[in-house]
Every structure is written in C-alpha cells, then in structure tokens.
Amino acid sequence: MALSIVHRATGIALYVGTLLLVWWLVAAASGPAAYANVQAFTGSIIGRLIVFGYTWALMHHMLSGIRHFVWDLGYGFKANEREALTWGAAIGGIVLTVLIWIIAYMIGGGR
C-alpha cells in the first residue's frame, strides 16, 4: 500500500486549506457581511465539496498519523499488522468523514 504518500498529500492539502479556516475566523471577527460571504461560499456546491474533501483529508491524516505513531512506539510491524493498520486508516477515514457529515446535516438541517 502506498499510503505514506497519501499521508503527505493530505498534509499538504490541509496546509493550503488553513487559508479557508483563516478566512472563516477573520470573517467572524470582521462582521455580519464578511461572515455571510463565507457562509455563501461554504453553502455552495463547490464550497461543500471543498469542505467535504477537507474533512476527509483531516480524518485520513489523523488516522494515518496514529498509524505512524504506533510504529514510532515500536508496534505493528508484522505483515498482517501493517495491513490491518493501513486498511483501518483508509476505511476509518472514509467512515468518520461520512459520519461527521451525517451528524452535521442532522444538526444543521442542510445548512
């Protein structure tokens, strides 16, 4: 599995995506009009796709990172353990992302 490069790619995506987080926080501090602009963007189809992608990148990077952490501690090096950790991170990232968005839609009512 070539998951290490995905870990890097998601890391770089999250790095660039912090611009969106900065925009959101600065807009919240700036006032209603600026905040409405952010909401208009994150509410659009493209905006939702980007935030959905960002959610997945974050969840995948976190689980993949925990996998690296397990290795740092000196565990999980057997072939079957490596496979289990890798698949766990890959599938877990998707499951968590979908779960978060289901909860978000239930709370936000599609907002």
Partner: peptide
C-alpha cells in the same frame, strides 16, 4: 457543529 446554521452574531 454548534456553529452550523448560525449567523455572525
């Protein structure tokens, strides 16, 4: 999640 659907205020 708490912020979803809320305005700036």
């Amino acid at each position: 999640m708490m912020l979803l659907g809320r305005n700036q205020a």
